[in-house]
Structure formats: C-alpha cells, structure tokens
Design a protein around this nucleic acid. Structure first.
Length: 588
DNA sequence: GCCGTTTTCGGCCCGACTGTTTTCAGTCG
C-alpha cells in the first residue's frame, strides 16, 4: 500500500477548511487550517505516528496527541491513512465542484468570492475565471467591479509564481538590497527586515520590512515605484505591498517610534508565537497588537473604555513586561520558547560571529574552483582561524575524486602551505570520503588515520530501503577514523528530498560513537532545525560548515549559523566555534 | 472543530487596505 504523506494529509485538511469557509461557517475553517499547518511541519510521518500508536483505537489516540487534532480530524486522518481519501472532503467537493486550490491562488480571491463566482457564473476553475473576466461578466456582479476584474486578470498572469517559497540563501540578498534602498531615504528613521526572513526560516514566502518614520507618504511612494516592482498590490498610508521581479511579494509597514518594538514583534512572527503572546496578554487582562501592549484603565473597578500603553517601544521591553527573557527571532515558533523565557531557561545561542573554523572546504583538486591557497586566503580575510580541506574521494569520479596517491600528495602540499601561513590560519588535512553502498569507506583506514578531519557522506544509492540506508550510514559512523557525518540526510532545500533514513537512529549512533553531525550550509541546510534540536538535547555535537566550492560560498556560513540557532544550539554544541586545539581534541 | 492555570462549555488574535459601497465585507498577514 502506498503510504500517504504529511503534505498530502495537510492539503486535504486545508481544502476542507476552505470549503467550510466558503459556506460562511465560523471557526471550523481555522481549526482545519491550523491542523494542516501543524501536520505540514511535523518531522515524523503521521502514518508512522498512527502505526507506532498501534493502529486502530490506540492509533487514533496517538493522532489526537498532535496539537490541533481532535476526535473528528483524527478520524479523518485515520481514514486517509487507510483509504487515501477523506469522505468529508469528497462530499464537499461534490456539493461545490470548484478547484479551490487553483482559484484561491489568485491574489485577492478568497473562499467567499469563489463561492459567489460559482453560484452566479458557474466558475469552477482558472479557465472559467479567465473567460468570464475577459467577457466582462465579473464586473457586472454585485460586490464585484471593474477593478476587481482587472486585478483577477493581472493575477492570472502571476499565478505560476505566487505561493512559491524562496530559499533564504537566494532571496536574502534581494531583500537586503530593498532594505538598504529604504534606509537611504531621508524620511526613514529606522529600517528593519521582519517576517520569516528575520527568523531565518529556510524558505521565505514574503518579505516584510518595517520602517520608523513620521512621514510615511513619501516612503510609500518610493517603495511602490522601485524599479524591480512589477505589480502594486496595496498602497496605503502605513502599509503597502508589491510584487518584485522574480515573484517575491514585499510588504512594507511604517510605524511611529513608540510602537517600534510591538510592531517588530508583530511582523516578525511567527504567527503561532504571536497568537500565544496575545493569549498570554488576554489572560492578564491586557491587549497586544502591533501598536503596543495595552491595559484597560478603570475607575472604581469599572472599565472606562480608555487604554493605557504599558509596553511596545522595544521588543525587549515587551518581553520583560510579560516577565520573560528576550526571545531571539530564530526561536519564535511557539515550540517551547515562551515557557523557557518565563523560566529564564532560554539557550544562549551560538552567535553570527562565533565560528573560528570551517570544516568542509573543496578545492580545485576535485570539484572546487580555487586552489587550497586561495581558499585559505579568503577564509583568513573572513576572520576564520582554521579550515579543513575536504575534497571528494575516488568513488566520485565525476568530481575527479582523490585516490590514496593524490590525497597523500595533497597532504604534503598542505604541510608546505601551513609553513607559509604559520600564525595566520591553520589548514587542516581532511577528506569528504564517500560512504560506499555497504557502509565501508572509499579510502583505506591507513590513509584516513593520517588526516586531521574525516567527513563521511553519501553520494550514491539514495534509494536504499530505510533500514538498510540507516544501517549503512551508522556503519560508517562506527569507523574510528570518521569524525563528522557530512550533510546527514542528503536534502537540498527546494530541490532534493532527503533520502529515507532514520535520523533519530543516526543521532543515537552519533552519541554512541562520538561522531559529529554536520549542519551543511550551502543550499542544503542539512541538518534541519528539528534534528539540530534533537542533537542538542541528546548531547551530540555539531559542526557548521560552508561546504564552499568557491570563495563566494563562504557566505553561506551565515545561513548555517541561523539554522543552528533555529535548532537552539549554543557554542558548546558547535565544535568549530572552538579554538582549533580544543576542536581537534573533541574528534575521535 | 479544538481546547482548558477562567477546563467539558463557551470561547476562538487583530488591524490595514481594497473595492464597492455610502458603512462594510472580504482578504491578507
């Protein structure tokens, strides 16, 4: 039987929610949406959770443990696991046969409008919609108009790119360019990137930028007329929204200085974090919004309708008023950070300037673009104290992988360079050694034992069955010469799914064997944040590596550090934040 | 439909912008 993925289940639940929203049913849509969001973000497959729970009644119980999943949704999930379908969804689809997924991708078109369009014009899909819009039929509907019709047509043109999420490493430079442009405006007092980019999520759907200013109008005018803007979605006094070349939506908010902290917290999110914060406020009889934290004033115990702002100028003040420590943006996902902040037990996250070394660097000996010397010089200029040269091994023939002879030659060259760079940067002898199909390594132990740092990684047989893949990698980790497991799951953000492997078992193997787990920064962000957190909890150490194949790739380190921070990692968890001697001693 | 330091009923985050209205519904984040 084909097992159903979390993504598929989430889409079904979300679709049910949208149908319910179409029918104007209150609250239920949000319940489904919430459950869908949670399930999408789960690391473990829901079908596994059900199976592990024992299936049947006990499986259902296990499903209900998932936040946002109650009796009814659990039953639907069970149904989907067993039959691949949800009867409730089938029924809804039949009663209103519209392609909700297609139509709600159109900007400004939500469930209510879709319902109206279906009732009045029998519009079921994007094609029907375009036809009706071109024929001018939509403008004639009550509640719709000429402008709406124009926007629908425009949006159809963009439908392909909307809803897409961008890899943070690719999109951050563009967001920063826009930030910089706004910073240069004389009217703007402060400019900050907010939203998921400030939380360093591995993918970003929209960019949010916050500006403090007394004169928003000229800032808004400049913003909507930037050269990269391809469409203005909204243009207001305090909020504007545009789509820029490449498909990214950028939202700009202008707030007064006294609300800066509240607004920054609000627009940084995550949504879940904000909702939890607001619920905390309500419990205390306060109100939290993007303008501040407010307390209702009362006279003789009776509310008199006036509100007094009690915090909001800075984020720190906001958290403090709640009796919490300041929560770094990377932690704001409502996954225990509020509780930890209350108990003053937040981690002291590894900092963006904390790395002293980089333990995965490729050179022109294999598939890198530059020489060992030039990679060392660039690393030095970036303030690194040591790098490990870790070229591929012979199994990776297309990368001109090193065999025993060539790697010995490379080691001799590194000795020479170390004399040249003495006192400036230390070049470590290393390898990115291929893990062969059976879990043995591509170079003999007699060679590996001569190296300072051995990373092992999978570049072949991605499709082995889960247990075999897990055993294979764990076997490599048992090798006393293997120090680090490079890019442990093989994923590439937005490009390649991880191979099927039991990561928790690998983390146990790492603990048992003293192997370091890598956070590979370049395009991979492998490990994922959830696994990083599990390593931290298990006391398994990690390294954050650029995986640089050219000098410009060192810049990816920043994203790797962000990823580590999102996984609650501290300096003590990241071996290359340590001086080289201490780092080397921590290896096998 | 979900949830619980207001706990098995009765709540459910909150505000800006747009377009079509003439006071507001729908959408978005």
């Amino acid at each position: 039987m084909q097992t159903i993925s979390n993504q598929q289940i989430a889409e079904m639940l979300r679709e049910i929610g949208e149908y319910l929203a179409m029918q104007n049913i209150p609250f239920k849509p949000r319940a489904f949406e919430k459950a869908a969001l949670t399930i999408e973000g789960l690391e473990e497959e829901v079908s596994e959770i059900y199976k592990k729970g024992g299936g049947g009644k006990d499986g259902l119980k296990a499903l209900k443990e998932i936040p946002g999943v109650g009796a009814s949704i659990a039953a639907s999930i069970e149904e989907a696991i067993n039959t691949g379908k949800m009867k409730d969804l089938e029924r809804l689809r039949k009663s209103t046969p519209v392609r909700l997924d297609e139509l709600s991708r159109i900007e400004g078109l939500g469930p209510k409008s879709v319902q109206k369009l279906y009732k009045a014009l029998s519009i079921r899909n994007l094609k029907d919609l375009e036809k009706a819009a071109r024929a001018g039929k939509i403008a004639a509907l009550p509640g719709f108009g000429k402008k709406t019709e124009e926007n629908i047509l425009k949006s159809i043109g963009f439908a392909a790119t909307s809803g897409q999420r961008f890899f943070i490493g690719h999109i951050m430079p563009q967001i920063r360019r826009i930030e910089e442009r706004l910073r240069l405006l004389p009217e703007s007092k402060m400019v900050t990137i907010a939203g998921s980019a400030r939380r360093w999520k591995e993918t970003v759907g929209d960019a949010d930028i916050l500006v403090v200013s007394q004169k928003p109008a000229p800032i808004m005018r400049q913003f909507v007329s930037m050269p990269e803007v391809v469409r203005v979605i909204a243009h207001g006094d305090t909020k504007s929204s545009v789509k820029v070349r490449g498909g990214l939506n950028v939202d700009l908010r202008v707030v007064p200085e006294e609300s800066y902290g509240a607004a920054l917290a609000y627009f940084t999110g995550s949504k879940d974090h904000n909702v939890a914060m607001r619920q905390t406020a309500i419990k205390r009889g306060w109100k939290l919004n993007e303008y501040g934290l407010f307390k209702a004033t009362s006279e003789k115990g009776r509310a008199i309708g006036k509100e007094k702002m009690i915090a909001g100028r800075t984020e720190a003040e906001l958290y403090e008023t709640f009796g919490m420590d300041y929560i770094e943006p990377e932690l704001r996902e409502n996954t225990g950070e509020l509780e930890a902040a209350r108990r003053h037990a937040l981690p002291k996250l590894v900092g963006y300037g904390d790395l002293q070394g980089d333990l995965q660097v490729q050179t022109d000996w294999t598939d890198g673009s530059d020489s060992i010397e030039s990679m060392a010089r660039v690393a030095m200029a970036r303030g690194l104290k040591y790098i490990a040269i870790t070229d591929h091994t012979k199994r990776l023939a297309m990368a001109n992988g090193l065999d025993e002879k060539r790697i010995l030659k490379q080691m001799a060259e590194i000795d020479k360079l170390n004399k040249k760079f003495a006192g400036k940067i230390k070049i470590l002898k290393g390898s990115e050694c291929d893990i062969l199909k059976d879990g043995t390594l591509d170079l003999p132990d007699s060679v590996l034992s001569k190296l300072d740092v051995v990373g092992a990684s999978v570049h072949s047989f991605f499709n082995l069955p889960r247990t075999e893949q897990t055993k294979r990698i764990a076997r490599a980790m048992e090798n006393p010469n293997v120090d680090i497991l490079f890019h442990p799951t093989g994923r590439i953000v937005n490009k390649r799914a991880p191979y099927d492997v039991d990561v928790e078992e690998l983390i146990r193997a790492a603990k048992r064997t003293g192997t370091i787990m890598e956070i590979d920064a370049l395009e991979r962000l492998d490990l994922k944040d959830e696994y990083i957190r599990k390593c931290v909890e298990a006391g398994v150490r990690m390294s954050i590596d650029s995986d640089a194949h050219s000098p410009s790739h060192y810049s990816s380190i920043e994203y790797g550090i962000a990823q580590a921070r999102r996984g609650w990692a501290e300096k003590k968890d990241i071996i290359n934040s340590w001086p080289v001697e201490k780092m080397l001693k921590s290896l096998k």
